[in-house]
């Protein structure tokens, strides 16, 4: 297990230099030409950094939420985050004037808003149970999907294409600008999730037991949900919706190194980063056009996920 854990942790560091050199335009020349330098520094490096960060953020948030809500089916999108962000982005594209910062900020705000509404809806007598939070998220997600449909209906065809394409998600818009837009949320949220990671084991024992064990359940759970939401919303705001990562990476990592969140959180961060780096490289190199990354992640992950289910019950049985 130790060797496996170590290999997973260093995998992104090994992968980054390789994927940096792969692409439509061959940058291999010495010395680097001006074009190669431009492509490397202004296109590939920000894209790869954003990709790695997105992998870390979505996987860590997914792992944390699965443990806190003690449900292996939970991912950031089940709390209404993706749907809220997609609505926010559509709203910005169709209604608001264009500005590079407006869209991601509005997407972030609505993603955050959706989760907040879900949590408020789930509050009964000042406490929320895991099940009501998940139900609240599903309901709020449905509402935002309905609102998104309304916007799509009134949008003019050119903007409609933008709305649909945004929802597919991807790293084609990656730039230093998007990197810096998403960074503050990650700088706030990720350290919190990393340092609270052992407490996730306690929270996953269930509401009553966590209280018996002396955990401040309400506070701890809120910290996890808020941090996960900030982290995910920051990523989704600049990349669009990248499905599946928050759901499957935790499972894949868990089946490799076990469920102890002390190790699972760092490992799923590294595994998520590696996974997204590889799939994004495939997306941009496999065909002459760029494949939407959600399509590729799903096509790669689904067979592997089925294999895991057959072999180890998804690593949680």
């Amino acid at each position: 297990m130790r060797l496996k854990y170590f290999l997973i942790l260093i995998s992104p560091i090994l992968i980054i230099p390789i994927v940096l050199g792969i692409g439509r335009y061959s940058i291999w020349s010495f010395p680097l030409t001006d074009t190669a330098w431009h492509i490397l520094f202004n296109i590939r490096i920000p894209r790869i950094l954003l990709c790695a960060l997105a992998g870390i953020a979505l996987s860590v948030a997914g792992t944390s939420l699965q443990a806190t809500l003690r449900n292996p089916l939970v991912s950031p999108s089940i709390l209404g985050l993706s749907q809220g962000a997609a609505f926010g982005a559509a709203l910005a594209m169709v209604v608001l004037p264009y500005h590079p910062y407006i869209l991601p900020i509005v997407a972030f705000v609505f993603g955050f808003l959706a989760v907040s509404i879900a949590c408020l809806a789930a509050r009964i007598h000042g406490e929320f149970s895991t099940i009501t939070i998940i139900l609240g998220g599903v309901i709020v997600g449905a509402v935002f999907t309905a609102l998104l449909s309304m916007i799509q209906l009134i949008a003019d065809p050119y903007r409609l294409a933008g709305v649909v394409f945004w929802a597919l998600g991807g790293f084609h818009r990656a730039s230093w600008q998007s990197f810096f837009i998403c960074a503050p949320g990650l700088i706030i949220g990720l350290p919190v999730l990393f340092s609270i990671r052992w407490r996730l084991n306690v929270l996953s024992m269930g509401d009553e037991e966590a209280k018996l064990l002396g955990a401040n359940l309400k506070r701890d759970r809120l910290i996890v949900i808020i941090s996960s939401t900030i982290v995910c919303a920051s990523v989704i705001a600049v990349t669009g919706i990248i499905g599946w990562i928050g759901l499957i990476i935790p499972h894949m990592t868990r089946s490799l190194i076990g469920p102890d969140n002390k190790y699972l959180i760092p490992a799923s961060a590294a595994f998520g980063a590696s996974f997204l780096l590889i799939t994004d490289t495939l997306c941009r190199t496999l065909f002459t056009f760029e494949m939407p990354i959600s399509v590729v992640t799903t096509l790669i992950a689904a067979p592997y996920f089925i294999y895991l289910l057959k072999k180890v019950g998804g690593g949680w049985r």
Binding site: R70, G206, G258
Partner: peptide, 9 residues
């Protein structure tokens, strides 16, 4: 009651 979730050691 304890509902089993993840297979912790």
């Amino acid at each position: 009651d304890h509902y089993l979730t993840f297979p912790y050691k």
